[in-house]
Design a protein around this nucleic acid. Structure first.
Lengths: 201, 201
DNA sequence: CAAGAATTGGACCGGCAAGTCCAGAAAAGC
DNA sequence: GCTTTTCTGGACTTGCCGGTCCAATTCTTG
């Protein structure tokens, strides 16, 4: 759905990309529901016809492209730590990266918007967030397993279960951040989660 | 904002209540964004004029009333366990109650809708969800403190911090449930969270 | 330098949904 | 019973926003 069948020149690709990024920014600040196509046109200095030229299926298709774009960001922003959780130092660095990320962006959260809004608006984008969650949890679970194999955690710990709990904590922490503006819950979820891992060693 | 300044008769109060409940049901199933005032009228067998008679500020005010209504439900549904987390048996019963609740309602979640949709639509309802979160965490924190005083947890554990982490886990578990339809993350968050409490005793 | 394709601007259309209005029915109060 | 207030039905207005259309223009390519 996100692929463009017709031929695009370099200029065309650039315009298409500009539209996606502008739309993503708009969605992040105003919310997916409140973002109109006219807003996107204004923000990206394009016209309606361009928009529908690059996204023939209209708003739906654009929002899907935005979802993909934002989903990529979420994981990339946690690298290189997320893919290499093989020492407690790495875990701490990851924790700090996640917190720093959300501290700086405040209530403007790509994932939050993705999860809480785009899905309702664009059923197709549910698949994007589902895939994102799976990948994210996979990375965390891999990290837990790595630590267990080092004997750094309780030996009988179930990596998938713990990974799921940790991911849930992060999600909830972010939700609460978006609601209240407070970072405390995200921080607590990460710290309690990680120290729980260490505890059983 | 949710109070009606003009005089209401018994019949009027009943109608107003019917509108709120019908609107809440509609919001739960269709989502806040997708629910139109005409939907509400149809679902509650009322007319537009009644709607604006009881909610002069229109959609905004109605959604606020729905938010309040749903917020009440969320905590009530966890009783009597949530307010009496003074034994591990009570904690387990609470866990089961939460899981059962969300299992049965599936992706139809009052709080989820509240948090993820109403806030964006109706800024005023942010205050409602914030208050809800505060009360919820207070109850959990009280429970943690009670267990600690019994010597049933690690003595150096910070109830507020652990309570925050647990609440975050629940929120995230619910978010993920709404997204993917899977209950595993909520379950993992509760189980890992509670067993983490028990661990340090 | 054509010829065709890709790109762009912007006016326009149509539907939907929030909100208004008013007249009439029902009920409350005296 | 009569007046006043509350309650109800539903037609109507208004504005917004997604989507269409077409002509103009710029690119690509031979």
């Amino acid at each position: 759905m996100s692929q463009q069948p017709v031929k695009l020149t370099a200029k065309g690709r650039a315009t298409r990309q500009r539209i996606i990024e502008g739309a993503a920014a708009e969605v992040r600040t105003r919310g997916a529901v409140a973002t109109t196509l006219d807003d996107v046109c204004r923000a990206t200095a394009t016209s309606k016809s361009q928009l529908f030229h690059y996204f023939p299926d209209g708003r739906e298709q654009l929002m899907y492209a935005v979802a993909e774009h934002e989903a990529d960001r979420v994981l990339l922003d946690q690298e290189p730590y997320l893919s290499d959780l093989t020492s407690w130092a790495a875990w701490d660095a990851w924790r700090d990266a996640v917190l720093a990320r959300y501290r700086e962006q405040g209530t403007t959260c790509p994932l939050g918007v993705l999860m809480t809004q785009l899905t309702k608006v664009t059923p197709a984008s549910r698949e994007v967030t589902t895939r994102l969650l799976e990948q994210w949890q996979q990375r965390i679970t891999d990290g837990v397993r790595a630590m267990r194999e080092q004997g750094a955690t309780a030996p009988d710990l179930d990596p998938a279960r713990v990974g799921a709990a940790l991911l849930a904590g992060i999600q909830g922490g972010v939700s609460i951040l978006l609601q209240t503006g407070r970072l405390t819950h995200l921080e607590a979820a990460l710290d309690v989660g990680i120290s729980g891992l260490r505890a059983g060693a």
